[in-house]
């Protein structure tokens, strides 16, 4: 098997379409030849790096034209961010978010507890939505969007105030969340994970083009949340940690509402989180009709140090 044939088989392996005989031959080639193992390793690393790179690029304002304006004739094949709750380790857990108040109840935690962070108006019950990157914590703000019937409706892509010459490729809505008041809830061992989840709905007719990618992203920073708007999005590389989830849709389909979950480890020196939910048409210009988000939640998962209790504030 020459290198080109081997690489084509590596692509089939990534697709999971190798027959048992082909898989055996693929393994034999690697077992017998260290150079083939090296080729496989390099290909996997490069594939993962490409995955990272394209995801990062999706949120850079100077995105390459080829990415922004690609002609799309794709079928209705959607991708979803696969997640499984780490709460599989937890027993019995009830959490609720009601407008601006927070309620959580923890019952019989064995190894993990969950706490809902003070993400406000996650169910879009209040009609407060401002324009531009937020200057303070506690409210939604971003590109042209509207809160209607308890949902956030994306209306139009916008550029960032910190980068006014940047191309408007997506409709982004943000909320800054102060993590410092809840720092005591972080496990002293640092094994705390912050999880952002949100429901996204593409209400357009089935197979409507262009495809739209929904994103849920969270970034953790140290420092003053009030000054981040001056440097956003150039300051993204300064994030202490980040998580991202995305899904691409072509109008409504049998899968209905998509729930995305993004998560990241919480460094002990994280002061605040940037929550970003976005809709990005994959061919521009495009109107963002019938695209909405709802039920945004931010959850901290950590090991318990406290006995069972119910807290309301």
């Amino acid at each position: 098997m020459n290198d080109n044939d081997f690489l084509a088989q590596a692509m089939r392996h990534q697709d999971g379409v190798l027959t048992p005989d082909e898989l055996a031959a693929f393994e034999t080639a690697m077992r017998d030849d260290p150079a083939k193992r090296q080729l496989f390793t390099d290909t996997q690393l490069r594939s993962m790096a490409l995955h990272d790179r394209f995801r990062q690029e999706a949120f850079q304002r100077d995105t390459d034209t080829a990415v922004c304006e690609s002609k799309r004739t794709d079928r209705s094949v959607c991708v979803t961010w696969v997640t499984r709750p780490i709460a599989a380790m937890a027993a019995g857990l009830v959490i609720g978010l009601f407008s601006a108040s927070i309620v959580w109840a923890i019952s019989s935690p064995k190894t993990t507890t969950e706490r809902l962070f003070s993400l406000l108006n996650g169910s879009f019950a209040e009609n407060r939505l401002e324009r531009g990157f937020p200057h303070q914590t506690g409210f939604w703000s971003g590109d042209e969007a509207a809160i209607h019937n308890g949902q956030l409706r994306f209306i139009a892509p916008g550029s960032d105030s910190g980068d006014p010459t940047g191309r408007a490729i997506s409709c982004d809505v943000f909320q800054l969340v102060d993590l410092r008041p809840l720092r005591h809830a972080l496990s002293p061992e640092g094994d705390s994970v912050l999880e952002l989840s949100a429901d996204f709905r593409d209400g357009r007719a089935p197979n409507t083009k262009p495809s739209v990618s929904f994103f849920g992203q969270l970034y953790l920073f140290s420092g003053d949340p009030g000054s981040l708007h001056q440097t956003w999005p150039q300051s993204i590389p300064e994030a202490l940690a980040s998580g991202s989830a995305q899904v691409t849709t072509l109008g409504s389909d049998a899968k209905g509402v998509r729930t995305l979950t993004a998560k990241c480890l919480v460094p002990a020196n994280a002061d605040f989180a940037v929550i970003q939910i976005a809709a990005r048409p994959n061919l521009r210009p495009a109107k963002l009709d019938e695209l909405s988000a709802d039920n945004v939640k931010l959850i901290l998962k950590t090991q318990p140090t406290l006995p069972v209790r119910i807290v309301q504030r």
Partner: peptide, 19 residues
């Protein structure tokens, strides 16, 4: 674009070929 479809949109080669 081929790489983007494959590694950003997570399309398999059957989908990429159709697109």
């Amino acid at each position: 674009e081929l790489l983007r479809l494959r590694y950003f949109e997570r399309r398999n080669c059957t989908d990429v070929a159709a697109i």
